[in-house]
C-alpha cells in the first residue's frame, strides 16, 4: 500500500517539479498542468483507497479479535463438555437388578419400612459394636461373628463355646449370665439398667433377623399340627368358633337353669300364696263357725291384731247370739 501511495506522490511531485521548471523557464505548458491535475486526482483516489484500506484493516483486527474470543469460548465449551462427559461416565448410577420391577406407592413403602423396622433392624449399639469388629483384622471373619447379638447394654460377654471377637458387645442372656461378669469394659455413658429397661423394654434381648423357635412353635402351623395329632382335620375346624359355641351352650344352659330356678321359685311362691289363701279361707270358715282358736294363726302382728279384732267381733257376735 505504501508503494502504491508513494508512486502517486512521486508522480505528483514530478509533475509539480516539471510544471515549476517549465514556469521557471517561462515556458509553461498545458500538458504539464493537465498532468499535475491528473496526478492530484490520482493521489486523492489513492488516499481514499488508503482510508478504505485502514478501515478494512481495523475491521480485520476486530474480526480477528472476535474470532479469537469465539475460539476461546469454543475451547472452553468443549473442555467443559469433555469434563462433564467424564463426570457423567464416572458417576455411579443406580444399577437396577435385572428382573421385573413393580410400581409401588410412597406411602406403602414407608408403612412397610416402619412395620419391618422391628424385625430387620438390630439395635444401634449392636451396629456400632460390629463396626470395629469388621474393621479390625481378618481373624474376626474366622470367628463366629454373631451368635448372640443383643441390645443396648454395652457389655461384653462371650459365650464359652463359641469364641467371639472381643469387639462384639453382647449383654449376658439368661444362659450366659453366670459367665465372666468381670469382662465388662463399659466406657460409654449409659443409663442405669433399670432406666434403660424401662425406656426400651426390648433392650438386652437378642436380635435375630428371622422368627424364633418359640414363635414358630406358637404359630398357626403348630396349632394345626396339634389338631391333626388329636385326630381333628384342621380344614374347616375353627377352635375359636368351637370355643365360642361351647361358651354359648354353657350360657344357654346357665340361662335355662336360671329360668328353671325362677320358675321353681315362682311355683313355690304360688304354692305359699295358695296355702295362705286356703288358710284364710279356712279361718274365715272357722270364724264363721265361732272358733276362738283363731288367734294362733302365724301371721304378722298388725294383721294378727286385726284378726283379733275380727275374732272379738265374732265373739261379740257369738255373745250376742
Amino acid at each position: 500500500m505504501d508503494k502504491y501511495i508513494d508512486g502517486r506522490f512521486e508522480r505528483l511531485e514530478k509533475a509539480l517539479a516539471v510544471l515549476v521548471d517549465s514556469v521557471n523557464k517561462y515556458h509553461p505548458s498545458i500538458a504539464h498542468a493537465k498532468e499535475i491535475e491528473l496526478a492530484d486526482s490520482e493521489l486523492s483516489k489513492g488516499l481514499e483507497d488508503v482510508q478504505t484500506h485502514q478501515n478494512n484493516y481495523i475491521r480485520i483486527q476486530e474480526l480477528r479479535k472476535s474470532s479469537a474470543a469465539l475460539d476461546s469460548q469454543i475451547r472452553d465449551t468443549l473442555s467443559s463438555l469433555a469434563s462433564t462427559r467424564k463426570d457423567i461416565v464416572t458417576t455411579h448410577a443406580t444399577t437396577f437388578p435385572p428382573g421385573p420391577s413393580y410400581p409401588f406407592s410412597y406411602e406403602e413403602l414407608l408403612s412397610y419400612a416402619r412395620r419391618i423396622s422391628k424385625t430387620t433392624m438390630p439395635s444401634a449399639s449392636m451396629i456400632a459394636a460390629a463396626a470395629p469388629a469388621a474393621a479390625t483384622s481378618p481373624e474376626t471373619t474366622q470367628t463366629p461373628q454373631a451368635t448372640e447379638f443383643t441390645g443396648a447394654t454395652p457389655s461384653a460377654a462371650p459365650t464359652p463355646s463359641q469364641p467371639q471377637s472381643p469387639a462384639i458387645n453382647g449383654a449376658p442372656t439368661p444362659m450366659q449370665s453366670q459367665v465372666q461378669p468381670s469382662q465388662q469394659t463399659s466406657t460409654l455413658t449409659t443409663l442405669p439398667d433399670a432406666y434403660s429397661d424401662y425406656l426400651n423394654p426390648l433392650s438386652g434381648q437378642p436380635f435375630y433377623p428371622w422368627p424364633q423357635e418359640h414363635q414358630i412353635r406358637g404359630g398357626a402351623l403348630a396349632s394345626n399340627q396339634l389338631l391333626s395329632e388329636q385326630g381333628i382335620d384342621p380344614k374347616g375346624y375353627d377352635p375359636v368358633e368351637v370355643e365360642n359355641r361351647k361358651q354359648k351352650e354353657e350360657e344357654e344352659r346357665r340361662a335355662k337353669e336360671e329360668q328353671e330356678k325362677q320358675e321353681h321359685q315362682k311355683r313355690l311362691e304360688e304354692e305359699r300364696e295358695r296355702q295362705l289363701r286356703q288358710q284364710e279361707e279356712w279361718r274365715r270358715n272357722t270364724a264363721a263357725g265361732s272358733s276362738p282358736t283363731q288367734s294362733t294363726q302365724p301371721n304378722a302382728p298388725p294383721v294378727k291384731k286385726q284378726f283379733q279384732f275380727s275374732s272379738l267381733d265374732d265373739l261379740d257376735d257369738d255373745d250376742d247370739d
Partner: peptide
Amino acid sequence: EAGMKAAVDWH
C-alpha cells in the same frame, strides 16, 4: 452367621 452379619452390615 451370614444372616446376622448381613443384618448388621446393611444398616
